[in-house]
Design a binder for these strands. Structure first.
Lengths: 197, 197
DNA sequence: TTTCGTTATTGACCGCGGTCATTTTTATAA
DNA sequence: TTATAAAAATGACCGCGGTCAATAACGAAA
């Protein structure tokens, strides 16, 4: 039976998160250094690691919050009317992840989480994402906008695969071309989801 | 105009690679430490980094060679007769990558390479893989075993996406279940490639 | 208030990847 | 041979994430 954390601890934790968010704002996720965080938070290094398993654990909270926010935005409009609209709905998420390889790497590390440890923010957001997609696909199948010969769960997880694929390619290419990775996603989505003509 | 490397340099390089391969044999890719390599090779640390950009550069050579070997095996049998056979043909590659997250991470970092820097072993193997898949798919399309409404290049790159997706999930799950990741791949491949019934 | 077990914080220390000014070795020309 | 410039190798040094025994702060009971 673990006790409730003391007030001081909660304050330290939120201070660390607040400082970390500020540094990310200034220098990006890849510019975040543990020593900077603890220095600006006025705390010893060991303290940070008593609050978060490791640097990734800290990043996971920050990134998880952002992803959750993006999911809220995606869900807001209800089921998109067709595949093109679905593609557009996913664009903000792609643009966010595409901004920094650190985000991509971290999300990928949790990307397979279908259950277990729902306390983790990132894991929870993945579960939510796949649930959201599955729901949409069910509706689209009923409307005849999406192929019906495969279960919506498989289609949903396939979409996650394509998201990662497109992002992986994105980070390899030198993108002077300022297009969004969502553009690269569309042909895959069409081929994956559209019913045979 | 850069000169040809001296004999001594080539010997040092191959010694480093040989020692690194031995350590991987003993402790796995994730057990490879730069300091161990240089110690056993009887060389200073800086020498290693004059031969390879960083630790990943060294690993890339080792892993690239192995992937190339696997590709040789895959190509040996010619075009697989159908989707199920194609899935089986990909199994050795999946099993190899699934053995250590380090392999997966490294390959992913190069996974989008469609051209450029063909001197890198890993990049070259990716180009070769997609070319091989594209050729197979063309043949299978002609034989009516695979959907014809999409260009074989797109189908091939989609397969690469599914390979990575399946592996990502693989590394998240605790696989007491000793099944191969190829089992997880099959439903995706069927849904992605099979012509509408 | 004092005591005392628990919780929270501390910071010196470590492992390990990576750098670079310096030194050694090699190949070539005088 | 000897001089010399380029190539190769060296190892002390650094940055940064992460550890852990020691210490301080807290809160409930006496």
């Amino acid at each position: 039976m673990t006790r409730a954390p003391q007030k001081r601890r909660l304050e330290t934790r939120s201070k660390l998160l607040q400082v970390a968010a500020a540094i990310v704002q200034e220098h990006g996720y890849s510019g975040l250094r543990v020593e900077d965080v603890v220095a600006r938070a006025g705390v010893a290094k060991g303290t940070l690691f008593s609050h978060f398993k490791d640097k990734d654990g800290l990043l996971a909270v920050l990134i998880g919050e952002e992803v959750t926010r993006l999911l809220d935005g995606m869900e807001a409009g209800g089921t998109p009317p067709d595949v093109a609209a679905l593609n557009a709905r996913l664009a903000p998420h792609l643009d966010y992840v595409a901004q920094d390889r650190v985000i991509f790497d971290l999300l990928l590390r949790y990307s397979g989480t279908t259950a277990a440890e729902p306390d983790e923010v990132v894991a929870a957001s993945f579960i939510r994402q796949v649930a959201m997609l599955t729901g949409w696909l069910q509706t689209l199948q009923a409307a005849g906008k999406v192929r019906k010969d495969q279960p919506p769960e498989l289609l949903a997880e396939g979409i996650q695969g394509f998201l990662n694929h497109v992002l992986g390619v994105w980070f390899c290419a030198e993108h002077e071309n300022d297009a969004s990775p969502a553009d690269a996603l569309e042909p895959y989505l069409r081929a994956w989801l559209l019913p045979p003509a």
